[in-house]
Write a protein that binds this DNA or RNA. Structure first.
Lengths: 124, 124
DNA sequence: CTTGACGTTGACGTCGGTGTCAACGTTTAC
DNA sequence: GTAAACGTTGACACCGACGTCAACGTCAAG
């Protein structure tokens, strides 16, 4: 399978696929013409990457999952390193939520101060 | 007051002050030597900008507050446009929180699936 | 006069994932 | 044979709020 087909089957641009390769997340044999040749498993690999990116992982975060899949596991999350990343990520999200809640409170307080009687949708 | 003093008094780099001016948020008279000359009120202006930036406003978001102060109001939040920005911002923060909560749930679900029995700190 | 602190403008680097274009080689279909 | 579709690498653009450096003008103190 060449890059165009992989792109089509995964819904990922060829640009992105090359970018992933450039960062060591994807690898491809090269045909005699220099074209990249992908295997079936790469579809799954790319899907895993996109799935993780879509929930806020960085590309670097996806590396353990990719390695996990490549080492034969059926799921990218089956390895201990992946689990650690999951947990780090959740703690990180929690932290971001805390920051946002604090910000919301601050902004709401400033609003209340400069506009007494103003209410904010969602405030109890 | 020249830019160095304003920077010192507000705790903002001269680079930032020039950047704010470049974007029309700050203005300065020019001395005969070309140096920027600031008034006392500019200290308050810059403080307002920093205060808003620190709670996640973009520079553009601060414009109504700056205009409000410059038009003579004692508080940057006293104008209706500022109030609207406050409200937009709060709704925006709420949206971000919703997104993060959804993400957290997704990630936690994936973790649970690939690591049954794994618990996440903070999960009830 | 010289030194050094301070001022000026302009421009590039940062971070991340991707779009997009250029300039070129290959394969495919007619 | 030729055009269209696809492949290759390399490089610039984006977004936002700056840091940082260059190359230069200005001004006070010794």
């Amino acid at each position: 399978m060449r890059i165009g087909e992989l792109a089509e089957r995964t819904g990922v641009s060829t640009r992105s696929l090359r970018y992933y390769e450039q960062h060591g997340l994807l690898s491809a044999r090269r045909g005699p013409n220099g074209y990249r040749e992908y295997a079936e498993e790469d579809v799954k690999l790319v899907s895993e990457i996109r799935s993780l990116l879509s929930v806020g992982f960085t590309l670097e975060d996806t590396r353990p999952f990719v390695d996990c899949l490549r080492s034969g596991h059926s799921s990218g999350g089956s390895c201990s390193e992946s689990v650690e990343v999951y947990q780090r990520k959740i703690m990180q999200i929690d932290e971001e939520i805390r920051v946002l809640l604090a910000r919301r409170a601050e902004v709401a307080a400033q609003l209340a101060q400069s506009c007494p009687g103003c209410f904010v949708r969602g405030d109890k």
